[in-house]
Design a protein around this nucleic acid. Structure first.
Lengths: 140, 140
DNA sequence: CTCCACCCTTGGAACTGTTCTATGTTCGGG
DNA sequence: CCCGAACATAGAACAGTTCCAAGGGTGGAG
């Protein structure tokens, strides 16, 4: 899949300096940043970017389907630019690290569908990463 | 699975009046309440219960493994008393309604495990419920 | 039965992540 | 240039959750 910035360029979407750095920061595999992490990294590239713009842009990109929003146990949403490429998530319950993984998708039996129109499925494997497994408590 | 209150009774856990009504409210299938909904319903049964106690109790129960916490896109966590009974969730993207469903669990291939110690898997089917499918916009 | 220590509960303040608002800035077309 | 529309900004407002200091109830020791 081509990177987010490239995808945006071919859409008719005004790519301002602020929006570009936000999109640039959201590139690659295993990238699952919080809004605040996006803000910090974007600001490192372009100091004149505000938190509001980060939130506005993230929400717009999610609405456009160019970014996936994933709720997380700690309350902060993560943003995943790796859309269109079916994958699931492997999450460390201790440190919160998230990796993209491939596995087959579960199917919902017809008798369990309750008349719903199915749109997609999200799979999250909860696990403990090697680093956290080697220490007794959590790595905070 | 026996109800939450019954499970708690056999543990050595002080079951005060407040904790009991909180547990009673969390009983049944397809029960996925927010903390505030738990608070409202508990208070209907026992007016002298505070929001802080609801949060304290919910977090304790989650820590004990008697309650599952599920992050949601709208920011409010839902609490599911139906633990120990493997099931997944069917969520309406418009109105947020959540149903318990059974489906087979996806397995994580060994070459995708990244050395993590697997603990569990959460599956969420995103869909549109019959009520929301019949109207153009969302039911707010 | 009485007392004490401890855990539980409480209301409200504090905190965190997100959204809103009012204002200023930039861009492209005429 | 000048204008309107879209975009960006700082900070206030908001919602959900957690923290805190103080009060209250309960169970065990004596």
């Amino acid at each position: 899949m081509e990177p987010l910035v490239a995808r945006l360029r071919r859409r008719e979407w005004r790519l301002t300096a602020q929006r570009r750095v936000i999109a640039e920061v959201l590139t690659g595999e295993h990238v699952h940043l919080t809004a605040d992490e996006v803000f910090e990294r974007a600001r490192a590239l372009l100091p004149e970017v505000s938190r509001a713009t980060v939130y506005n842009t993230l929400n717009e990109l999610v609405g456009m389907g160019e970014l996936a929003e994933m709720p997380h146990a700690d309350g902060r949403k993560r943003y995943d630019p790796n859309v269109g490429d079916r994958h699931h998530h492997l999450v460390c319950v201790d440190c919160g690290r998230i990796l993209d993984v491939r596995a087959d998708e579960p199917r919902l039996p017809a008798d369990q569908q309750h008349g719903f129109e199915l749109l997609g499925v999200e799979v999250t494997f909860r696990a403990r990463c090697p680093d956290c497994a080697s220490v007794p408590a959590d790595v905070s």
